[in-house]
């Protein structure tokens, strides 16, 4: 695996770890949730980088599932927590 792919993946993982601070500090629920969404995006990017770097196609499927299901949590948050209509 060439160093470009692995160092980019490492950088994105460090971005996730840095984002953990945002979740812990908040201050609002939306900040935490958006940080989690950022993790989803970073995770997809890491998986795609590893898929290219390791030439391991399965990782693309995992990235696809991640991308699809990250949207689900965002929708649930927008409807159920973020001032969603009374249900």
């Amino acid at each position: 695996m060439s160093w470009q792919y692995s160092s980019a993946a490492l950088f994105l993982l460090l971005a996730i770890v840095a984002g953990l601070g945002r979740i812990l500090r908040g201050p609002t629920a939306a900040d935490s949730m958006l940080a989690a969404q950022l993790f989803g995006t970073c995770g997809v990017a890491i998986l795609l980088l590893l898929a290219r770097g390791l030439e391991w196609e399965v990782l693309q499927d995992i990235a696809l599932v991640f991308a699809l299901l990250a949207a689900l949590a965002a929708v649930a948050f927008a409807l159920r927590t973020w001032g969603g209509t009374e249900r």
Partner: peptide, 10 residues
């Protein structure tokens, strides 16, 4: 990461 998140939020 996906289903449980939605379940917990609800």
């Amino acid at each position: 990461a996906g289903l449980t998140g939605a379940l917990f939020l609800s």
